[in-house]
Write a protein that binds this DNA or RNA. Sequence first.
RNA 1: GACCCCUUCGUCUAGCGGUUAGGACACAUCCCUUUCACGGAUGCGACACGGGUUCGAUUCCCGUAGGGGUCGCCA
Length: 528
Amino acid sequence: MRSGLDEDFHKRGFGDGLAELGHEDRDGWHLWQKGLERRVDSCMSAGFHGSRQDSARPFQPLAFLKSSSTLRPLPASGAQKRPFSLHFLMTPRVRFAPSPTGDLHVGGGRTALFNWLFARQTGGTFILRIEDTDGARNTEEAQRGIVKGLRWLGLDWDEGPEVGGPHGPYFQSQRKAIYDAYLAKLEAAGRVYTEENGAVRFKFSRTAITVHDLVCGDVTFAPTEEPDMTIRRPDGSYIFHFVNVVDDIEMRMTHVFRGEDHLSNTWKHIDLFHALGATPPTYAHIPLILNPDGSKMSKRDAGSAIEHSYIHEGFLPDAVFNYLAMLGWTPRADKEVLTREELAKLFNPADIHSANARFDLQKCQWFNAQFLRALSPEALLNASLPFLTSAGLVIGDEAMAAAAVYSVKEKVSLLKEIPAWVHYFFREDYPFETDVMEKLKAKPENANLLKAAQTALGQAAEWSESSVHGAIEAAAKDAGVKTGALMPLLRAALSGQSRGPNVATIAHLVGQESTLRRIDRTLSEALG
RNA sequence: GACCCCUUCGUCUAGCGGUUAGGACACAUCCCUUUCACGGAUGCGACACGGGUUCGAUUCCCGUAGGGGUCGCCA
């Protein structure tokens, strides 16, 4: 979608790649290139990231121009220019490229999330590519875990497995012919050699290579002394570094958001891009997620796996999405609880932190509690259904069930806690908790109090929450006790528990007949 | 061992040379209240250390220490 001006701009050579930036002022951004100045009205993702390393190149700008305005000769004055790379007539293409190792790891989930956020914000394309080059340890089952985790988080992809796309196949195990062709290019360029056993190595250029990173700034690596990199095994299968670069070229990636653990190897990738005559994408190496004690988070650690730690524990996708997005990035907003749409709108790679972050399960649960409370009764019931079912509860009346779970929503932070709070709504043979039983038996007059309440409730002509409440108050008054003395007894009788929603709410929801039966049962079983 | 990244309350963070160093989670106290919660209020609590630069450093520079990462025919 290029405007005429953009087209003109493009014709004059303002393509992707290196441009120069003048300055930012009230009029917007002034970009300078090839003797012309272009003023930019609006930018998506406006922002600059200061480079800590090289003060001569202090900014690594990030701009996706939406509209353009004037195009005029560059002023002759020697205003300072700052070089930067900019893909400004191109919609971004980003990808998440996991190797299928089973359950989606939170670190991977967040990497996918940042890519997704960026794509959704800029109107770009988000691609899922499965890096299953290591046939020995990759299984279809493992790949399903990744897909399930991404779908659960709501990270939909525009190209990739299950949805297809123009640059497929999206499994590296199916792209051998492409890699062979690229290997031929390297051979033609004299950049590879084959070892005696058949392994193929890539000849490093052994020059200094600078990574221009949106997060880390410019990072320069001195000419390497490492041995040349193997890119193909003797059995003909290819190595990660090579296929990763080839696919990023083939799939036209403009940006790569990935974990900081890749930063140290990025010079190798850039070397490959250059050897293949391609321009490297813009990189953004995002900080890692650490355990609460600062150690590296691995598969076995709490909170590390999407399905095991979140889906099964009763987290809501939106909450995990929100929490993960805030780990390593702070949106410029006056609140923390944000929807994925709001996060996508606010996302700015320039605001990504460069320091690793520790995982805090409590805060993640807090986010979950926030989203839980915002759910409608129907949505809450729907979300808790798997947990209610696995607790053996049978839902008869859905409206009642929805009201029941809704009545305890601010008492829990995880869906899996809900059954323990609502089980008595769905059955009348609930157990009496030990302390509840003791409390009931503590005073002989409790039985009479309950009987009085039962009589009053039995006589209620109307069965609304307020009428129930009124009947209980009246019964307490007649019996000469405070309402606050009767309520706990009734709560015990109706639920077998000492805590829960309002007593009147419970009675109202289970109905008049059940309420009376529950008191009968208490009288005979707990006080009999 | 070499190289790379990082360092503000316990945790996530705001800050971009001059602030009583702000917020959120957690924790504590109080209020609300039929319980448990929610909510509200208050409190606790941080610039890793040492040198510079500067009238002035949390902020800029250099070291040190500490944490993390990378150096695979894993991805």
